[in-house]
Design a protein around this nucleic acid. Structure first.
Lengths: 339, 339
DNA sequence: CTGAAAGCGCTTACAG
DNA sequence: CTGAAAGCGCTTACAG
């Protein structure tokens, strides 16, 4: 490729900058910045504004995020760190809802699924204003982020200093309470709890189980008999038999997938729900209604959870909190035939 | 709060910069940069390197991504834009796999679910090197991104100029072929196709249906009878009856969720799979094995698809392509009892 | 082998 | 109401 064909040949794809806009509009770069950022207390004439906007449109100007971030020391990016665990339809809804709520506040949410600390280079590269962690995180990692000037919100573990207590953890506990409450209301006095075999789920599982336990205590019935359910119908059949032998008449499954495994095991063992053993799941996955029998489950309203999480995030910023966001129950029972 | 308590009071939380590291290590900022970036052809003594690294560790230095991006005009971020549609376990796996493959190449993948163009401010804020679009995208939006110096890779629509043809679209077509092939091999001559009611899924559905059609053509059997399946077992029961009346003996469901609805409808109508109507799904969702009867389905190997997509992305960069990435079938049939 | 200096594109006191 | 200028923290020719 030849070079030097004339002095002012445009470099390929030179970026359009605020200086270009200023020149086009016949104003200074300062004014361009004021107009574009709607800086208060800087009375810019309507006509000037107009010229600037026109120039922006004509030139197709896009401000450099990097330059702005460097100058202000702050980006509008919120990084959502998800745990490396089976992420279901509920997790995705949480992400969607949180993205939307924060978007309205001018925060740009972006998501990353954890892959074991490899994403260390990520936050350095991304320079987010805040990292919301929905995954286990070692303290040193948190410290390093904070040293880099990033807000860290841990919504996973409910440390006293964190907001998690009001949001994720609490809603998981509530899920367990609802399951036990529904079953007890149907007359069951001895419950079982079907835990997932996947270790990555154990934090969630313990929160939910604790909800069941606490509800049982409050209701004055025996604590649940806990069993792990593998993704295998024959093993699930054995578990069902053993629960019945232990006097269990209804079981709270960790989630709908565990409930499906249990239901399949029961069919294999010639047992019927809810007669021989009532089953209630969590999540109301799309196929829950098509289970045999149709699965009673707990539907989590991630809009509510996301709203609370968003409040906590905004509270930590200098941003005004969202008002009038929907509040209410974070979960409700969807009664079908299995319990 | 008082101010001016002595001249050199540290501002709260001043950022540690390369200058601080240089001072601490007793070298220049240039040397710090060379060491940290492993710049070739700059022979730095091992001892100097050591001192720099020690200073970095001692001070907890994190380079400013914003400054680097501003200076180099390039970030290592790849933004993955997902369509606003029911995202299942397969989509998540694609994200995970793609994240991992590109991570190894030094690219930081970050994900965002589309919410109708509202994420326009996102790419401006994020300044990614590349945007990989797994969603419908209007041409003007693409142009604006490219004008901002961002690579756009459209893996959704298989434009001739795009890589999608080799990856997503092709794998979806393949899924349909596999379904039809499995059914034909079992002796079925007249197939049905169960389409999803959700319009947001129609692009995928048409790709898969075309695969079924093409396979039927190749096999010399009649084209599939297409019916839409709502998430309602009574409606699904009606569809099943009509298929049978039309001589259909087996149906390819758009995905496992549609298959579950159909299976539930069949049970309600006193029909059994595969005897009265064979059913094959797509995705092998975790509960597929617990369907009644256990669901035969097509498992998509997102590792393969992600690998191909990653190749295409790297090819567009100046980065060397990954060699030795796994290649092979993008999907296979998981035979259970329903077909 | 190492360093002084320019410049990426913004925002924001500060001075008119 | 508008503009000239400093500076955010890097990278990278260029000069020793």
């Amino acid at each position: 490729m030849q070079s030097g064909q004339g002095g002012s040949v445009a470099r390929q794809q030179r970026r359009v900058t605020a200086v270009d806009v200023a020149r086009e509009a016949g104003v200074s770069q300062t004014t361009v910045s004021y107009v574009l950022n709607d800086v208060p207390h800087q009375k810019i004439s309507a006509e000037t504004r107009e010229r600037v906007h026109a120039a922006v449109a004509k030139l197709g100007y896009t401000p450099s995020a990097a330059a702005r971030a460097l100058r202000t020391g702050q980006s509008d990016i919120v990084l959502l760190l998800l745990a490396d665990m089976p992420l279901g339809h509920t997790a995705i809804e949480l992400v969607e809802q949180l993205t939307q709520v924060l978007q309205r506040k001018g925060l740009n949410v972006v998501t990353r699924i954890e892959d074991g600390g490899a994403s260390d280079s990520l936050w350095a590269d991304l320079a987010p204003r805040t990292v919301v962690v929905l995954a286990p995180m070692r303290a040193d990692r948190r410290r390093r982020m904070e040293a880099a000037g990033i807000q860290v919100i841990n919504a996973w573990r409910c440390d006293a200093e964190d907001v998690g207590h009001d949001t994720l953890a609490h809603s998981q506990h509530r899920v367990g309470e609802l399951q036990a409450g529904h079953l007890a209301a149907a007359g069951h006095r001895q419950l079982g709890y079907a835990a997932p075999a996947d270790r990555r789920l154990s934090d969630f599982y313990e929160l939910r189980l604790q909800g069941v336990r606490d509800a049982c205590g409050e209701l004055g019935i025996a604590p649940p008999v806990v069993r792990e359910i593998e993704a295998d119908k024959d093993l699930a059949a054995v578990a069902a038999q053993e629960w019945r032998a232990a006097g269990v008449t209804a079981v709270c499954a960790f989630n709908d997938e565990v409930a499906f495994a249990l239901l399949a095991g029961m069919r294999a063992a010639g047992l019927a729900a809810p007669g021989d053993l009532a089953v209630i799941g969590v999540d109301d996955i799309p196929v829950a209604r098509f289970a045999e029998p149709p699965l009673t489950t707990v539907d989590q309203h991630m809009g509510i959870v996301a709203g609370e999480l968003a409040q906590a995030i905004l509270r930590r910023q200098d941003l005004p909190e969202a008002s009038g966001e929907p509040r209410g129950e974070s979960a409700t029972v969807v009664a079908r035939q299995s319990a």
